[in-house]
Design a protein around this nucleic acid. Structure first.
Lengths: 233, 233
DNA sequence: GACGGCATAGCTGTATGCAGCTTAGTTGGT
DNA sequence: ACCAACTAAGCTGCATACAGCTATGCCGTC
């Protein structure tokens, strides 16, 4: 569980002995808000404001924003501010193309062992998703997706792959979470299917299967995005 | 040529209209020094010292170091300093495993067109490598390798893949450049072979071939590292 | 009424000061 | 001679002040 090469990883360990610095806390919180659509594209991330919220000075906030700038989700311009950006349709396509390639590698590149915790979490998420199918709630949908992503990322043994998996997740999340608001029933149904398949693979102890399940459902998600959002290049 | 998702990319365009900030300049310079072994593992990166060198305050230097911290090549500890780290043998293995998977994708994920500039550069590099074969010079070896990497990265059309390609390059470079010092003749010979094959592929206009050539030679390089450096886990 | 220039408010970029932490060296005691 | 505690130096982490840039709204002019 080395911390190396795992910047964008929220490090939400079971026991969190406060070993992450203030900058990392702020960084992860900003990322979470972006992919949870709490700060949708167009929102200004004012350093002074965030500084007041976290009871720190502008310095750590500035550092946090600077660290996540490489994801392309935030653009900072001098004299103007840091604004949350929606990735261009072409960028989204490239991110998804990358995720389609990375997914099958989850099971082939030294995956980590499946534990009962993983199975339990998957069951819980499935229950939550079933509730979602009846009455859709965008916030809960995003949260379930997020925790499912964390579950799968936890099975990735290769540090580089795990870091890339998180990076592309954050880049893609904002866009297709926005889609969830539009067509709740469809994505809820898809999420239930995905969780059922993942649960089956977990019970079989087959991490490779999970990788391919991801590959399949990322493809479905991308098709939905292409259909409903992406119009221009 | 969007700047999105391309943090670790040195942006050494033909015309560099000074559009990169001071932080980015310092960031790229630090990374260059690390992978050129000018600041070998164990070296302390003192903020005040670098600040004096670039005629700025500690703030931008601090930001630059913070931005590259996610690569695992620098570890900053409070009260101690920022020290250049050698990746653990296991981390190196994982980075190489990742590069072996990424390489074939260069040709399949919307590669960019080959131009005469690419062919000319490859010829120049081959000439330089031939000279190297007679009298080996670690510094020149590293530089040729670096420019070859830049050439290949320039053929990658997918922004995510290009960013990952750069990230894993920096992570791997320091280690196998260290190896170059030890066995000059062998790596020089390998570099000549690689450049000849890349040149042939460029003349055929076959970017996919270049991806597979990379895959092959990364495998060779990794085997050399396993043989000569990696001993512990 | 419309347009151009200007002033002003607000943000980021940078410099600097200070507090806290770590380590190495030193000094005193046993 | 050895060990322990202490002291001082040096570094990072954070806070704050200021300079520079940008956008917006206002006012004067045509």
């Amino acid at each position: 569980m080395a911390a190396c090469c795992a910047n964008t990883e929220p490090a939400e360990r079971v026991i969190m002995p406060d070993d992450q610095s203030i900058v990392e806390i702020i960084q992860n919180e900003i990322l979470r808000r972006i992919c949870f659509l709490e700060t949708p594209p167009g929102t200004q991330l004012k350093e002074a404001e965030l500084a007041g919220e976290f009871n720190v000075s502008r310095t750590p906030v500035r550092d946090a924003i600077s660290r996540i700038s490489h994801l392309g989700l935030v653009e900072t311009r001098n004299g103007v501010g840091s604004v949350v950006m929606a990735l261009s349709p072409e960028a989204i396509r490239q991110v998804y193309a990358m995720r389609l390639e990375l997914a099958p590698l989850i099971g082939t590149m030294s995956p980590r062992p499946i534990t009962d915790d993983h199975r339990r979490l998957c069951d819980d998420l499935l229950d939550a998703a079933l509730v979602l199918r009846v009455g859709f709630d965008p916030g809960r949908y995003i949260q379930i997706n997020h925790r499912l992503h964390g579950l799968i990322a936890d099975l990735i043994g290769n540090q580089s792959l795990r870091a890339f998996w998180w990076q592309t997740y954050y880049q893609a999340a904002s866009t297709w979470h926005r889609l969830g608001h539009a067509l709740g029933a469809e994505v809820a149904e898809a999420l239930v299917s995905e969780l059922r398949e993942v649960g089956r693979a977990l019970n079989s102890g087959d991490v490779a299967a999970i990788g391919h399940i991801q590959r399949v459902h990322i493809g479905y998600g991308f098709a939905r995005i292409e259909r409903h959002i992406l119009t221009g290049p």
